[in-house]
Write a protein that binds this DNA or RNA. Structure first.
Lengths: 187, 187
DNA sequence: ACCTGAACACCGTTCAAGT
DNA sequence: ACCTGAACACCGTTCAAGT
């Protein structure tokens, strides 16, 4: 049977999860699908657009934050982290694509909207949500990198380390939320 | 005259600034120095260690934060940003090296120490400074990426955009500092 | 419509050999 | 001590040609 675009995307996600972003090459992907590398270019414009597609998959149906702003944003951040943690190197991937303005550029729109309805000015809301997204991506980036370094450095118990990282994450988000709350006061 | 290790580093910084991290290849660097690519490996162990050296240069003599914690941290963050903005793609470079545990891993130590002396617990201090570094790197990363995208998208006035980015940066840091301040309250 | 095969212009790194 | 030259094992992408 002929290859479908979805087959290519699925195989790419598979390589990403198993071997990481650095090993996700067009040639390797082609090998995996038992096809010549050049065949991929019938299904996909180029590597960058394929990566953008992967980002779309990873962040698919991530709900917008809603409800009371503080708990709403906190749980949105946790959900975003959870989505990212499902795929290896996803924070790196998402950050790169955001940098190129290709995908996930609108990630901050959700939190910004909620903060505006909660009373922050346009500028404050976009600033705060931008900061939040930086924080989430930065934290998950380091967390994912640590996981990959663990085998080399001598891994602590995975379960324990994951719980600690999760608490660090929540703690960081709480600091930021406290800062946002005090921004309300000075409005 | 024979090439020195410092010559290699200087030329690498030159390529970084003029053409960006993606174009900083060993072969191009060698061309630039009018030497074979293999010659570089006498002066430098491999590409990664060269990049680590560049990070060390970029962050050289960045002073530790001191004084009253709030203004001390704010000005430290501004100084870090200023150092990073001197070299193209530096935030990307620093983040990558931090990820590999090679250089600049101890970037958060300074702020953490100041926050501890100011009264935060070990955990809170390291969490807050980690968050701060994420914020700085994340912000500068996007700022630098935007600069590189500007020629393509239709650049606004550079001066104006830089001032706006600077204010965004300061605003983001202020939000975080407010959050840290309110963490003191709950100690 | 979908894929192959060959080519182009690149990478980082190693290593014997030259001076 | 410092560098060349050639090689190895890779990249992403294009494009005529096949089915």
């Amino acid at each position: 049977m002929a290859l479908s675009r979805q087959d290519v995307i699925d195989a790419a996600l598979g390589i990403l999860d198993e071997y990481g972003l650095a090993d996700l090459t067009m040639r390797r992907l082609a090998d995996n699908l038992q096809v010549q590398a050049s065949a991929l270019y019938w299904h996909v414009k180029n590597k960058q657009s394929l990566l953008a597609e992967l980002v779309r998959c990873i962040l698919d149906d991530l709900p917008e934050p809603s409800g009371p702003w503080r708990t709403g944003i906190a749980s949105w951040a946790a959900q975003l982290r959870e989505r990212l943690m499902r795929h290896r190197d996803s924070a790196d991937l998402v950050a790169s694509m955001r940098a190129l303005g290709l995908a996930a550029t609108d990630l901050d729109d959700g939190p910004a909207a909620l903060l505006r309805t909660a009373g922050l000015s346009e500028q404050q809301a976009s600033l705060a949500s931008q900061t939040l997204v930086h924080l989430v991506l930065g934290h998950v980036y380091e967390e994912q990198q640590r996981v990959q370094l663990a085998p080399l450095t001598g891994a602590d118990a995975d379960e324990e380390a994951a719980r600690a990282a999760g608490q660090d994450f929540d703690g960081g988000v709480q600091i930021l939320l406290a800062g946002i709350a005090s921004s309300f006061a000075t409005v």
